[in-house]
Design a binder for these strands. Sequence first.
DNA 1: CCATATTTACCGAACGTTCGGTAATTTGAT
DNA 2: ATCAAATTACCGAACGTTCGGTAAATATGG
Lengths: 179, 179
Amino acid sequence: MATLDLSPISDVFRHQGYNGASLSMIAEAVGLKRASLYHRFPGGKQEMAEAVLADVREYFLINVVGPLHSNESPADRLIQAIDGIRIFYRDGRKSCLIDVLSLGEPAALFRPYISELIAAWTDAMTVVSRDSGHTEVRARQLAEESLIRIQGALVVSRSMMASDVFTRVLDSLPDHLLA
Amino acid sequence: MATLDLSPISDVFRHQGYNGASLSMIAEAVGLKRASLYHRFPGGKQEMAEAVLADVREYFLINVVGPLHSNESPADRLIQAIDGIRIFYRDGRKSCLIDVLSLGEPAALFRPYISELIAAWTDAMTVVSRDSGHTEVRARQLAEESLIRIQGALVVSRSMMASDVFTRVLDSLPDHLLA
DNA sequence: CCATATTTACCGAACGTTCGGTAATTTGAT
DNA sequence: ATCAAATTACCGAACGTTCGGTAAATATGG
């Protein structure tokens, strides 16, 4: 059986975007020939991207959204979630699929997946912020703001090749999000 | 003669990314045949992107950086700059070349241009923040933070197709940046 | 008429995808 | 446990299309 490891494919999409990610790159990344990819993904490139998105979704539910909903203290929950985020983005060295897959005409194919991902993430941050003492409305504002800062930090640190920008934003999250 | 209008090319790059922007798309956008582009841009696709970046740079220097350095009040300066930003990004409906051109392997070609653009922008916001009463160090922090929030808002509002996210961030800029 | 601008026609390479076929593995009946 | 049958995994070669780019021919304006 040996279900294929999706993270090399994820890396290609995150680094190249959807259009920029060629099947040759993907095949080389997973150690298969181009044709063999169609055994694992009969739906072709689009199915590969969808599989990667599902994989990312699972990671986020387990390592970010899950911790944010636990019954520990808001501060502890947020610390765990931040760790999950930091690891996922490799300290800001890896781009975000939300960013990268929302470009060009292929974006339409993934909008539903991406919207759901953003919603789950924002909701979870809203919960931990509210639990720390903020009103529901304020908590939602702060959660949205946090998502924006994370995405912005990823763009800026990538375009300047300075990953400390991302690290700094992550470290400041508790102060921004919690009462 | 009639020097070519670069904004259609800019739009293609911003919507599709560098890899995703094909010469066919660009040719159609400017109303020329593919081959004719090589009369205007002997350097090919890369020269087109560089020309667009130079065009963007000029816009920013005139409509964003310039106003931020004027001798009006910091609040008035910032308002003018925000207008320049809002128009440039069409209320968040258009992506940022800084984001889009820092993806994939072609990113290396544009890193110098992009770094300079970011530096000029950040410096200008630092000036207006310092002039409003903040210390140099704090002003620089806030300027960097503002750039991050703008870039993040562009990503989020694009991926959710909700341009109000971007508008809200722009409107909140004076409160964040000025003392 | 001349030069510049634009076009048509074309190139090799890479694209995503399909297909026929071959190892390798799993299954099922003995 | 054995061995043929069936299934799974993978590959090489080729498909038609589009890519970025070039050369030769035509159109346009001074």
